[in-house]
Design a protein around this nucleic acid. Structure first.
Lengths: 207, 207
DNA sequence: TCACTCTATAGACACCGTGTCGAGTAGATC
DNA sequence: GATCTACTCGACACGGTGTCTATAGAGTGA
């Protein structure tokens, strides 16, 4: 987690920065990043609009700070997952995907804001892509290992599979927790995603 | 395709409107909708900025006109597809998905612009969602039929499957043809998507 | 106690893109 | 030739962003 914002690391004033971030995450649950002006974020934290720029260079940089924390949490939870795919592969995949479902659900405001903002902001795109790359690499590695031990059939390159399935998760979670009209029910989404992953990776089509 | 723009349907002036749309689609291949000001679209069609408003109420409404045409093309091509899933299901799905791959590829500028704009514009969202709904219904129907004739196993509700797989296609095609860093190669994307659809719908996991 | 320094704050300003309004032009039709 | 109407543009107002400058106030050392 790099140092976002322009302040040097000091004791006082951190609470103000945190206040801005808290206010921001709260405001983002109701409306989108574009709909909320910097003035609103500032007033939400009890400061003037121009003073906002003392803490963050722009709205996007504020979002980066929020996103940093969410990504760190996912990575922390993924890292502490048991990597035992030998005993019950379906359950192991389900647990991995479950981490994303949970964190996305808890921080849906930040996640959806990031997905929206990445098309406009190269920095947000870079941070998001870097995180996705980590998860894609993780998935690729496991798929390859599963094939090597004969548990999964060959076919599509594991890297392509990993990219596609991760993009699917991103889009579906975004739709579901963003309350889009075309989405899967929150209670069912983990089942659906896990099933598709498992059938895609291990499934064979009877002829 | 409803009447976009504010002009009443008349003979002359349609070419101007078309000129704007052509210029727009050309400009959109290089930069995003947000990056291009109305002034640029107008000058691209040889008119002044304020005159743009004579033809379209806003940038988004211009996009709607572009999107109308793309969606109509997809639907037309999907409708003229043979619906024979009995003989070779994998090939039939591949052809259906192929329509989306081709049209998305040909009109990638409009498609990606629409995907970006829908988060901001309720009208774009409505049009896009309506189109997606059509394709989801189409997919759901076929999956249900395939299960009914015993060709596909039960499990996840076919509607959930259809939504998820269609969202996957949307995201992956957007990534691939938008030249995102994390994407599938253009030559491989149809193979990958078709494989996932088929394995998900027909595949069984050996125990 | 008195400067001095550095963080923190806000008001004022300039800029850019959007959308509206009203005045004006050109070509067809009577 | 009058007029009607589609069409065109310049000028304006608005809202959001980002910068610059002045200054308040807390901590620090002589």
């Amino acid at each position: 987690m790099t140092q976002r914002g322009r302040r040097t690391a000091r004791i006082s004033g951190d609470d103000r920065q945190d206040a801005i971030l808290s206010a921001a995450e709260r405001l983002l649950t109701a409306r989108s990043l574009d709909d909320i002006s910097i003035e609103e974020f500032a007033h939400g934290a009890g400061i003037s609009r121009s003073n906002f720029y003392f803490y963050f260079r722009s709205k996007d940089e504020m979002l980066l700070a929020l996103l940093d924390r969410v990504i760190a949490e996912v990575n922390h939870r993924v890292a502490s997952l048991p990597r035992d795919f030998g005993r019950d592969p379906a359950e192991a995949w389900r647990q991995s995907i479950g981490v994303f479902v949970e964190v996305f659900s808890e921080h849906r405001a930040v996640s959806t804001a990031a997905i929206t903002a990445r098309v406009r902001s190269p920095e947000v795109l870079a941070l998001w892509t870097e995180a996705m790359q980590t998860w894609v690499d993780y998935s690729t590695e496991i798929i390859t290992a599963e094939r090597a031990r004969g548990a999964a059939p060959d076919g599509i390159a594991s890297a392509d599979l990993a990219v596609t399935l991760n993009l699917m998760n991103e889009r579906v979670l975004s739709a579901t927790f963003g309350s889009e009209k075309l989405a899967v029910n929150q209670d069912a989404v983990l089942d659906v995603l896990a099933t598709i992953w498992v059938r895609t990776i291990y499934g064979v089509v009877p002829t």
